[in-house]
């Protein structure tokens, strides 16, 4: 078959809702875009362990500690599922890890903000994992089989992440004046970064239309962002929390909550490596990688000896 016929069949398969599997014909650009998306997603899970991992030793109760440990461990596992999916497209684990450690790979900008109090553990769970679930529920229907399967697994597990966060925010919002102040402060700091998680404005998202045509995404960044805002605003207000946006208002005609324009300068600054914690996050990843080198060496030596 020539390229044009292959391409037509590929589009027809996507239109029929078939999953594309490793080994199937796919346009080179489909492969490239998926490797870009999936590896960034994997890196986000791995770097995403850091803001919360920092609080494991300072959990207020034993229950909160095991819950947070389990959540952070899940994020590590999700990174593994996703590296696996990217590998099925021809990327190697070594290349991806190298790109992350060298500071060449992108990951979600939200993880470059610091977690300053325990209330952040609740707010991250509800806002950041909540936003991630919205994106991932869409991606579970993605046309690429291995990515879609990884998303199904991840979504099931992340529901726990979101709800444990929600539980904490509810407790704090209905707690002592001090707890209320803490959780309001957490919302003030995490609101904007969580809206940025949906990525650049549609007008700055050149790949979106193609990704939708290929059945990778079904909604644009701005559509998902608006859905998230519409879901979160009433819930947070119900708890007596104030959304940190003086221009927030409800639009009767569209039924949407309208927010201020996102600070896109800040968004691009953080994406390009100049956020509050970018350097710290990469330093932590490098240190973990280097400190684990002797373990990898020992395991390889053992495996070689055993094989002989």
């Amino acid at each position: 078959m020539d390229e044009q016929a292959e391409l037509q069949e590929f589009q027809a398969r996507i239109a029929r809702g078939e999953k594309i599997e490793p080994g199937d014909w796919m346009p080179e650009e489909y492969r490239k875009q998926l490797i870009r998306m999936i590896s960034q997603h994997a890196h986000s899970e791995i770097v995403g362990m850091l803001p919360e991992g920092a609080w494991i030793t300072r959990a207020p109760t034993l229950r909160r500690k095991i819950v947070l440990l389990a959540k952070v461990q899940d994020e590590g596992g999700h990174g593994q599922y996703l590296y696996h999916a990217a590998e099925t497209l021809g990327a190697t684990r070594e290349e991806m890890i190298d790109a992350l450690l060298a500071g060449k790979a992108k990951y979600s900008s939200v993880f470059n903000y610091p977690s300053l109090t325990w209330a952040d553990m609740g707010m991250i769970g509800w806002l950041v994992d909540g936003a991630a679930i919205m994106n991932q529920t869409m991606l579970a229907h993605c046309s690429y089989g291995p990515y879609s399967r990884a998303m199904v697994r991840i979504c099931t597990e992340e529901t726990f992440h979101k709800k444990q966060g929600m539980e904490q925010v509810i407790k704090y919002a209905r707690g002592t004046p001090q707890q209320k102040a803490m959780v309001q402060d957490a919302l003030n700091r995490w609101w904007a970064p969580s809206l940025m998680m949906f990525g650049p404005h549609d007008s700055d998202s050149p790949n979106s239309a193609q990704l939708i045509a290929w059945g990778v995404k079904t909604k644009t960044n701005d559509e998902l962002r608006q859905e998230f805002i519409n879901k979160m605003v009433p819930d947070l207000q119900l708890l007596g929390l104030k959304i940190p946006d003086p221009n927030l208002h409800y639009d009767e005609t569209s039924g949407n909550w309208i927010t201020s324009e996102i600070d896109w300068d800040e968004f691009w600054r953080v994406v390009k490596g100049d956020g509050p914690c970018n350097r710290e996050r990469l330093a932590a990843r490098r240190q973990a990688h280097e400190n684990g080198a002797w373990v990898r060496e020992a395991l390889n030596a053992y495996a070689e000896k055993y094989e002989q």
């Binding site: 095991i66 819950v67 444990q164 929600m166 509810i170």
Partner: peptide, 18 residues
């Protein structure tokens, strides 16, 4: 490890009540 299951966090009834 039941705390790994989202059912261990009955948050919806609270939100509905509110």
């Amino acid at each position: 490890k039941t705390y790994r299951n989202h059912l261990a966090y009955p948050v919806e009834p609270i939100m509905r009540e509110l």
